[in-house]
Nucleic acid binder design. Structure first.
Length: 482
DNA sequence: TATGCCGGGGT
DNA sequence: ACCCCGGCATA
């Protein structure tokens, strides 16, 4: 199949070598990230609320013991305003300034209060647990720990009793605070189902990993053998297909980025928008609310939003090392791919929209060509796969990369000739197709085994000296042409 | 498994 | 350019 090229390339070419290296990364990543988490968690160094929270809570439950307040978006708190006590929802907690932005439902006000002026209504933990799968919140987390933080609040309504109310409040807050920084509410959103939603649709199990140092490697690695390839970033490259969701869903990017020095952002692909956000959740929300309308329930919409954003990797430095993320995508080409492809994705790759290119290609293109493309698809998933979802798309491209990515590998003359035989009228088409299939047009290229006898058969191995030079050199026989 | 031959390497 | 060979696809 088309794999030939890729494989061959791999044999001696740098490309092949490159591809392989990435595989190793995964482990490193996971390990590394874990380390990062532990270290950074206490300070909440990352912007992404999600990341921070996960770290703090999930990875370092002990942190809770600290006196420091930790307020989570959506968390219910009580504050005093105009001499009266109001219930509100945390919008943002600025640890640095020790201030908390609170949204007072009853008054529709967004107030800023010093942390010490805020009374906790309940522990974030509680909120999270019931709503989500609580990846971060380790089930093992001793209630006592949670209690501690809760104890801070003076008039603490029973968490359960508030459950319903909280939901409403949170919903209201979410709606009213959409304009706020996306990251801040990361957690909230996640819990509210954004993430879980997508996660559920694709894979299960991953979520558990999600927040913390997730274990990217395991799931990724095995995914689809073809696409995946080198597990490495399995997340991206290979597995992208099946597991792709992970990489994206996980908010790991932050940790990894830091290490790799590759900044991952999410860009809104909506026409004339181009908004850049740091978190997936944020971009999703942006797309959903700004472009798709805010239909929280519309399942379809949720999925749609995936098609309107792309992951953008901003390199802050060049690093030869296999970074967790780009390892496979490693080199610029790969990195770039996602971005390039994405924009088109909506139209071309979106699974739902079948019409895109196919129509043109499939119709005019000769069967052989089409076929070839399909093969590529298998190798170069990057361009084709995306259908599943943007996430997948990206990941796929990486995954496929192993051998194929070189994408630009030259097209062999052979392949062309092959096509020629079948159709004379397609010169133009050919070019089109070629262009269309980013990866390579190898497939058909390999000469089909001819019917004619070859020197080998005619003379036998014993008389190799009588073979034509081509045969001797293991090239296409020149004496007995087909 | 044998064969055909491509992609490459060495000289 | 010549010679070889690893390796893959196919029969």
């Amino acid at each position: 199949m088309a794999s030939i090229l890729s494989k061959r390339l791999g044999k001696r070419s740098l490309l092949g070598a490159r591809v392989c290296t990435p595989i190793l990364c995964p482990d490193g990543m996971s390990v590394e990230s874990a380390g990062d988490l532990a270290v950074s968690a206490p300070l909440g160094a990352y912007d992404s609320g999600c990341y921070k929270e996960c770290l703090e809570e999930g990875a370092c439950p002990t942190n809770l013991s600290t006196n420091r307040f930790k307020l989570y978006p959506g968390q219910k708190v009580y504050i005093t305003h105009n001499g009266r006590e109001w219930a509100g929802l945390v919008e943002q907690h600025n640890h640095i300034d020790d201030e908390v932005k609170v949204f007072v439902l009853e008054q529709g006000l967004h107030l800023c209060r010093k942390t010490e002026d805020v009374r906790l209504a309940e522990t974030p933990k509680h909120m999270g647990v019931p709503m989500e799968q609580s990846l971060c919140a380790s089930p093992a987390m001793p209630a006592s720990v949670a209690q501690r933080s809760v104890s801070r609040s003076i008039d603490v309504p029973k968490r359960r009793s508030d459950a319903v109310e909280m939901d409403e409040m949170m919903a209201a807050m979410v709606l009213t605070s959409l304009s706020c920084t996306p990251q801040v509410t990361c957690d909230l959103w996640k819990e509210s189902g954004d993430v879980s939603d997508s996660g559920s649709s694709t894979t299960s199990g991953h979520w558990s990993v999600e927040c913390g140092a997730s274990t990217p490697s395991p799931p990724h690695t095995e995914a689809s053998p073809k696409y995946t390839n080198e597990g490495f970033n399995a997340s991206h490259v290979d597995e992208g297909f099946e597991t792709d969701p992970d990489p994206f869903l996980l908010d790991e990017p932050a940790p990894r980025k830091r290490k790799n020095s590759v900044k991952v952002m999410y860009e809104c692909l909506w026409p004339n928008c181009g908004k850049l956000l740091r978190s997936i959740v944020g971009i999703k929300r942006h797309v959903k609310t700004q472009h798709l309308g805010d239909g929280a329930d519309s399942d379809q919409r949720k999925r749609e939003e995936d098609f309107y954003y792309t992951e953008v990797q901003l390199k802050e430095e060049a690093e030869a090392e296999s970074t967790p993320r780009s390892p496979s995508t490693p080199t610029t080409p790969l990195l770039i791919q996602p971005m390039m492809a994405k924009p088109e994705t909506p139209a071309l790759e979106v699974p739902n929209m079948e019409p895109p290119l196919p129509s043109a290609l499939s119709q005019s293109a000769p069967g052989s060509f089409w076929h070839i493309q399909a093969d590529h698809a298998y190798q170069a998933l990057p361009s084709i796969q995306i259908p599943v979802s943007p996430h997948i798309f990206t990941s796929i491209s990486w995954a496929a990369a192993p051998s194929a990515l070189p994408a630009l590998s030259p097209i062999r003359s052979r392949s062309l000739s092959f096509s020629e035989q079948q159709q004379q009228q397609t010169p133009s088409i050919k070019s089109h197709l070629i262009v269309a299939s980013p990866p390579r047009a190898t497939n058909g290229s390999r000469k089909v085994r001819g019917e004619a006898k070859k020197c080998r058969k005619v003379y036998g191995i014993e008389h190799r000296d009588q073979w034509c030079t081509a045969c001797r050199w293991k090239k296409a026989c020149q004496r007995f042409l087909d």
